[in-house]
């Protein structure tokens, strides 16, 4: 058996020494914060145009995380490339020759990549919150208000889980291109459109991103059939399914 600490160290150096790690994680931060600020500023300037209902259910924290809808795409790219690049470069054979215990290699990779994603996502989440609140003016909130700290931490958790979900999917497909081609439009377009279609809404609520976003809200949508912890549970199930599916493929298939 390869020593787990040695494999973790090796995977850490793998992540650290490719450029894609730096730029995907930097993009996740920049896009999330920048669009969060932009949307917060827009909302602040047009707050009086909102309907009475919208003003009453206004979620100041959730608004500052709104950039995550775009920022998550960079997290997806990060997760997909961490796993997929092993296949696109042919490195996987060399990696497996060095660490033939596939489960150990897989979990070491996922652990190191998820930890990296979590650090960046936490920084991103707090940065997006403070930057967003600073332009929301009189409509802003603070971390001390009820549920706000939970929403901020969950926004970081959401980004991390999206990255982990992408790693599992990329391993199941064993291809960066395929995984990107499926995940990007799914999370950027399909679920975003489906939640606005009355009939499809009921199903779309249970998609991983929609469920996960529920845990980042302070004020819950009336039509969402579960609360923040329900959302976390649903998303965690999706992530677990992707990770286990990835493990099954990795163990079962020829490299």
């Amino acid at each position: 058996m390869a020593a787990p600490a040695a494999v973790l160290h090796s995977e850490w150096v793998k992540i650290r020494t490719v450029r894609s790690t730096g730029w995907t994680l930097a993009m996740a931060f920049l896009v999330t914060v920048a669009f969060g600020v932009l949307l917060s500023a827009l909302t602040n300037s047009r707050f009086d145009d909102l309907s009475k209902q919208d003003q009453l259910t206004f979620d100041a924290a959730g608004t500052s995380f709104a950039g995550g809808v775009l920022g998550q795409l960079a997290m997806i790219a990060f997760g997909v490339m961490v796993v997929g690049s092993e296949y696109s470069t042919g490195m996987i054979r060399t990696s497996l020759a060095a660490v033939p215990q596939r489960g150990a290699l897989y979990f070491a990779k996922l652990a190191v990549a998820s930890a990296s994603a979590l650090v960046v996502a936490t920084v991103t989440s707090f940065a997006a919150f403070f930057a967003g609140q600073s332009v929301l003016g009189s409509h802003s909130t603070s971390l001390g208000e009820p549920h706000v700290l939970r929403a901020t931490l969950c926004a970081a958790l959401y980004m991390t889980l999206i990255a982990l979900f992408s790693m599992g999917v990329a391993m199941m497909l064993r291809s960066s291109m395929l995984a990107m081609g499926i995940l990007m439009p799914l999370f950027f377009l399909v679920t975003q459109i489906l939640v606005t279609v009355p009939g499809a809404k009921k199903v779309a609520h249970y998609f991983p991103d929609q469920a996960g976003q529920a845990m980042t809200r302070v004020v819950q949508n009336d039509d969402t059939p579960y609360g923040p912890w329900g959302g976390l549970a649903i998303m965690a199930l999706w992530v677990a399914a992707a990770v286990i599916g990835g493990l099954a493929v990795f163990r079962g298939r020829d490299a």
């Binding site: 690049s85 470069t89 054979r93 060399t94």
Partner: peptide, 12 residues
């Protein structure tokens, strides 16, 4: 083992 020459990460 050397299986094929392209078994390394080109960007590392």
């Amino acid at each position: 083992a050397l299986l094929d020459a392209k078994a390394m990460h080109g960007g590392r």
